[in-house]
């Protein structure tokens, strides 16, 4: 599904290097988790994959289903099946949630040569997905993320994911800011989307989320690279002992 090879990234405007030779391979239907200390480059990785400005790839490649991602416009990456649930979802005053979702869905479908979804079908689809995520219909009438609580924003990201049905989903700290019940809802939403043709990369600091969304593989990221890869137990180890032991072991 997603294959990243020797990715090196620096800030476009500064000499600061953030990713230093990152390798990652996620197979179809797999769930991978990335954990790692603050500032290790996890969000940067997700931004670079989704095409945010301000970063410069100096070396390496990233492919989605064999297609080179890094050359594409952000909208083309989305149409190709990539989705990033943001660590900090963006507020867009003046753009209604529904308008936004429908524009996005139809734009993606158009880009893939599929037919647009009618207003009626779209409404039905949103209502159904919103209900399972316990998102209030009133909230959908408001501008994108404006006045949403932290948890509501995160749920809204998952709603977008459920409607757009991407193939490769990256969740950047979707659990932060969620209360216990919301965490369960969001995890159920994610699990409902798990499918042989869909993969997940879950960035998180806490084992808690991984109790709900069970990963196949756990990676530890430090200083811009994946330094250790293992099974679900690796997350437990981090939870219990922090990163110090792992980092010391890697450096040794």
């Amino acid at each position: 599904m997603l294959e990243i090879k020797n990715l090196h990234v620096k800030l476009a405007e500064e000499d600061k290097v953030i990713l230093r030779g990152l390798d990652l391979k996620i197979g179809a239907g797999e769930v991978h988790a990335i954990m790692g200390p603050n500032g290790s480059g996890k969000s940067t990785l997700s931004y670079v994959l989704s095409g945010r400005d301000g970063y410069e790839v100096t070396e390496g490649s990233a492919t989605l289903l064999g297609e080179e991602l890094l050359e594409m416009e952000p909208e083309a990456r989305a149409a190709a099946g990539l989705f990033l649930a943001f660590q900090y979802p963006v507020e867009i005053p003046g753009v209604g949630n529904m308008t936004f979702l429908r524009t996005a869905l139809n734009a993606q479908r158009k880009a893939r040569g599929e037919e647009e979804v009618s207003a009626g079908d779209f409404l039905k689809l949103v209502r159904e997905k919103a209900k399972t995520l316990k998102i209030d219909a009133e909230m959908l009438k408001r501008p994108v993320n404006v006045g949403f609580s932290g948890g509501e924003k995160k749920r809204n990201e998952i709603l977008q994911m459920a409607i757009l049905e991407p193939k490769m989903c990256i969740l950047d700290e979707t659990d932060s800011g969620l209360d216990v019940d919301a965490m369960k809802l969001v995890s159920d939403g994610v699990n409902a989307l798990r499918d042989a043709g869909r993969s997940f990369l879950v960035i998180t600091h806490y084992q808690r989320l991984l109790d709900h969304i069970k990963p196949d593989v756990v990676h530890i990221m430090a200083a811009g690279r994946i330094v250790k890869t293992g099974g679900p137990d690796l997350a437990l180890e981090v939870e219990n002992n922090g990163y110090a032991d792992i980092l010391a072991e890697v450096q040794a």
């Binding site: 952000p74 989305a78 867009i92 996005a104 734009a107 880009a111 977008q160």
Partner: peptide, 9 residues
Amino acid sequence: YYLRSRGVP
């Protein structure tokens, strides 16, 4: 960027 990341050209 947020809009584009959702597929809006």
